[in-house]
Design a protein around this nucleic acid. Structure first.
Lengths: 216, 216
DNA sequence: TAGATTGTTAATCGATTAACAATC
DNA sequence: TAGATTGTTAATCGATTAACAATC
């Protein structure tokens, strides 16, 4: 199964191809060229072909790539054939906003619970999702089969809660806190650090460059 | 002034060093080694020294880097000496959550306005920030001297609004929408794409790797 | 002085780009 | 067949790592 090492930037590009393929499939398109995929994902046709060829030969020379089979292939590669069970930890403003983020479902991520410390919230539902006590974090994660966590707690408890999530068997954490989490074996971490991105924008602007970084 | 080309990943590391330097300065620490900065920013001591040496010689051999001067140097390099005037476009759940995100101010970004289409919201204040009509986007941006925009509108209008922001003279856009914005000369763009990051997590988990990507 | 740690050069590694034969 | 476009190899480019002389 051709397992080279795949860089983060390549995985991001694969997400971009998948998004475009889903769009084209919905429109009924049958075939797409590497050039067209490249345009949407802000890369080059050569890069698209190189990326895809890591996993097999999905296209037809002279014709392009068949939309639906390639989409399904990318869904398989990215591990999205079945939905992931996820929770939001921290039902504050940001957490609540994310509970209502409808694209989660569309993209294969099912939010099954939220956790918070606030007694006012615990036991209620927000956006149709039950808010549970963070005291029961470990047991609820186990009984509900939760695999991913979106972390939106304050800086103070962030590390400790990340440790508890790892302990409870969560496989991945999407970290919206301004806290750098230390790596834990068996747990993948992705950071969404607003301050870091804003500082990146600031740097690009003052140096007069618009190498827009990722273009997402 | 040493102007090599600086990669996005390097700018992200610089943000990480800055964060740690601010923390150390608040604690009263005088000196820090490349090794200590590396530990916090999830990189290596050699990388830290290489990164910093792009901009000058800030350390003392045998002693390390002086905390406050290096912090100030990074503030200067990243363009953070004066605060950036920013707005949030789209005062829905996510936009509102971001309006209350206190770290903006601490890190040198001042939110001076929000924009929305909802007549219920227009004219009110949310988190002490005035919500203005998106009809007045261009004029308000100009009169209020807004330089950055945080985009949290739905997919539908995202491209058009990004174009209007660019037209009105905004220098940078932090894009929380699931829409890929096309580059515009003079406007830097950073994407915070939740779906892309979740798919990245998914891939890392199914391939059993925890090369946690960024660790933010 | 002896120990520590930077700044910088050279070596390595990995990712991107270019080119083109294969083939639809 | 002629034109288009992939898959793949080779060339280029850039980023990271290692090593060590300089020097505090």
């Amino acid at each position: 199964m051709s397992t080279r090492k795949i860089s983060d930037s390549m995985v991001r590009r694969l997400s971009g191809y998948l998004r475009q393929l889903r769009f084209l499939a919905a429109e009924g398109r049958r075939v797409v060229s590497s050039q067209e995929l490249a345009d949407e994902a802000a890369t080059t046709a050569a890069q698209v072909r190189k990326d895809l060829s890591q996993f097999g030969s999905f296209g037809q020379r002279g014709r392009g790539y068949p939309v639906v089979p390639l989409r399904d292939e990318l869904v398989r590669i990215l591990g999205l054939r079945r939905p992931w069970r996820a929770c939001v930890v921290g039902a504050g403003r940001l957490g609540t906003a994310l509970l209502g983020y409808e694209d989660f479902g569309k993209r294969g991520f099912e939010i099954v619970a939220a956790f918070d410390v606030d007694p006012e919230l615990i036991g209620k539902e927000v956006e149709g999702i039950p808010v549970l006590s963070i005291e029961d974090l470990e047991s609820e994660i186990r009984t509900r089969g939760i695999e991913l966590a979106v972390l939106t707690v304050p800086h103070g408890p962030a590390r400790r809660i990340a440790d508890r999530l790892a302990e409870a068997g969560v496989r991945g954490i999407l970290n919206f806190t301004p806290t750098r989490l230390r790596a834990r074996p068996g747990v993948s971490i992705r950071g969404m650090d607003i301050a870091v991105e804003l500082e990146g924008l600031s740097y690009r602007i003052v140096t007069g460059g618009e190498p827009g970084g990722n273009g997402a």
